[in-house]
Nucleic acid binder design. Sequence first.
DNA 1: TAGTGGTCTAGACCACCTT
DNA 2: AGGTGGTCTAGACCACTAT
Lengths: 252, 252
Amino acid sequence: MRTLPRWREISDDLLHRVQEGEFAHGFPGELALSERYGVSRGTIRQALTPLREQGIVGGGRGRRPYVINTSRTSGFGPMYSLRDAITARGGNESSEVVAQRIVTSPQVSTALGLAAQTPFVHVARVRTADGAPFAMDRLWIIASAAEPLLEADLTETSVHDVLRTRCGVEFDAGVEYTHSVPASAEVADRLAVDEGSPLLTVRRKSCLAGRPAELRDTCAVGDRVTLTHVFGDASAVLDCGGDGRPIEIPWD
Amino acid sequence: MRTLPRWREISDDLLHRVQEGEFAHGFPGELALSERYGVSRGTIRQALTPLREQGIVGGGRGRRPYVINTSRTSGFGPMYSLRDAITARGGNESSEVVAQRIVTSPQVSTALGLAAQTPFVHVARVRTADGAPFAMDRLWIIASAAEPLLEADLTETSVHDVLRTRCGVEFDAGVEYTHSVPASAEVADRLAVDEGSPLLTVRRKSCLAGRPAELRDTCAVGDRVTLTHVFGDASAVLDCGGDGRPIEIPWD
DNA sequence: TAGTGGTCTAGACCACCTT
DNA sequence: AGGTGGTCTAGACCACTAT
């Protein structure tokens, strides 16, 4: 695990402070931050970029800077600008781990363009909110980068967090494919829905230092899950009614 | 329409050249670009940032820079890092415009947090690839910013392009909600699928200068459409087989 | 009018990859 | 070894907003 650049340390620190509510009554400007951290304004701007892109802090030329969203549970990193969050309808969320071991898989290796015998850490979980399953996911990460994952408790912790803190690993590129498919018999059984009912599936392939490193499938119940993506300071269109369900208007 | 910053002009110019294949045999380095455009390296880095984020050019410390993806049809702009493209299975794509007029709508105004009588330009289309409909979309944009849209030919041109070139308008923030829902009778009829079959719906709310400006609903046939998001230099995991459909392996 | 962020410059040093 | 991009500095000027 190499040392992080200064701008990244500052960015992490600011995110942490924001999440603890430190700036609820006003976020400092770039000049003030520049003094506080003892770095140039350019470095501060670099640190603020991800926070602004992800809509965590807002402001703009002339405006007083402010905090938009404190409740953001997501970690930090570029992949979160891809798929910010799967939000379940419900409160208490936990996971049942149904697989957590080393495997090889020709299908996975092929999908990632790796050698057929590449060993992966394989994790599969069923995610539950308030007693009702709302999604299942499974992932394969090249074992050489993710062995501590085998011993982690994944019922309450995200894989991303474990990778970051225990493995010092963060994905730097990737692609996501999202589909809507009918539930197969097996999945319908595990998620307690009717066979054929609409599911949201997301396949993600991620890279580590430019090399394929992870394949992840997420499979979510259509009417229990909303996939949300935020870009920039969207505070003007958040929380103004509706959860994104289509408006009931004829398609004239 | 105000003048664009220099870095943005350079970014647009580079994207244009990339798409015309000018750099197929090698992309210039930052120093070379700095000389060519007569600006400092910082400005060049700013211009390259969106191209690198969207995985259009690649490289890295020490590596020779290169072009990853020329065939990118998408325009330019931050919203495209949200929902890069809806890719249909098929070749010839066109749209049938089923609505293109000024309207007011309490539902839309409410969803955007605007006054109930706000006039919108309303556009609704059914999108077809190789003769089969694969998606429909409808949008409402505040009329004051988008009037030229009323007279545009939208059968072959994207709304985004018209907004950019004719209205000088680009969204700077937004949120997208993605769901999987069963087809209603009306939508099933228009898209030529069975009632109840899985659809992918995307609702987007966008901002212009920090104010709500657009609501857009897209409704796509599950098995004809893939929603793709790319982050960074994902060249290692693109084109290595599979279209993102879930692997057929039991969820042990 | 004061303070903010957006843009831009002209340097510097270093880590990393290719050769 | 030479070239690349990543990081950082210390300035500058300007557009915009709030007051």
